[in-house]
Amino acid sequence: MDVLAHAPAVEQGPSLRQRLAAKGFDAVTLLVVPAAVFSLLLFVYPFAFGFVLSFEPKGGGEWLSNYRRFFSDPFLYETIAKTLWLAIPVTLLNLLLAIPIAFRVRLMRHQRLLTTILVLPITLGTVLVAEGLLNYLGPQGWFNRTLMTLGLISQPLKLVHNYWGVFASLLITGFPFTFLLTLSYVTGIDPALEQAAATLGASAWQRFRHVYLPLLMPGLAITFCLSFVQAFSVFPSAVLLGEPAGPTRVISIAAAQAAFEEYDYSMGAAIAMIMGVVQLAIVVAVLASRGLFYRGPASGAKG
């Protein structure tokens, strides 16, 4: 239906405007142009620019030398393993916690209160969570104090300025994200399917294993990917809560240091590209395995 473009009366055959409109190009379609241009300029172009720049090393030399340097310097290449060592366990833990909790919360009447509390760390952001945890998990903080009062430990646990500080911050900001995504997938499944399975003799575990899990798999794969890439690009909390020169020197730190402390934009871009490739590799691997599962509407099928 043509709202904005009125085709003028023509004598012979359709005008160019009519032919374009028939393909879906008319004045309304043009409304997409500003946003598309904007996206090309500020998203596609920088990516392409960074990609090319990463092959033009700052100090001259051969085109691959940035990448050669990255993979020969343990201080640089070890950041991949360090980041994965944080991101994968945290993401898996978040997902494993999110699934059973989402199944419970689905039955809850006042879901909104809980989801509002859970959305707090996401809206407050990583910097504030890092700042809060510094004190809360510190040797004099309430967390250690409570454990000592309960007699569970005799010495304060060292929970900040190391791996566990970053782990805790990724849990606090990552879990709500993972959980809310999982919840939206779980509530998307028609409860009648579970009832049908029950009348057919399936126990609670069988209902989960044979009905819910296969229907949830595609959603869980996407949730894993989105949660993983967030965790993999961890930055402020790795600096503030971790040991940015040691075990929590994550790949973001290496990239930011190269670009904005050493002013080696070419190296910075190369590390950002490597970061993107690792994320992409994991996402592709997970989504490819998704092809093994059923994909389609998760409700009782209708015509």
Partner: peptide, 20 residues
């Protein structure tokens, strides 16, 4: 008894066929 222990067959309004 729980539904799975009763062994009654049920046909649901929207069929509730397992889509996968």
């Amino acid at each position: 008894l729980r539904p799975e222990e009763r062994g009654f067959g049920m046909v649901f309004q929207n069929y509730a066929l397992f889509p996968h």
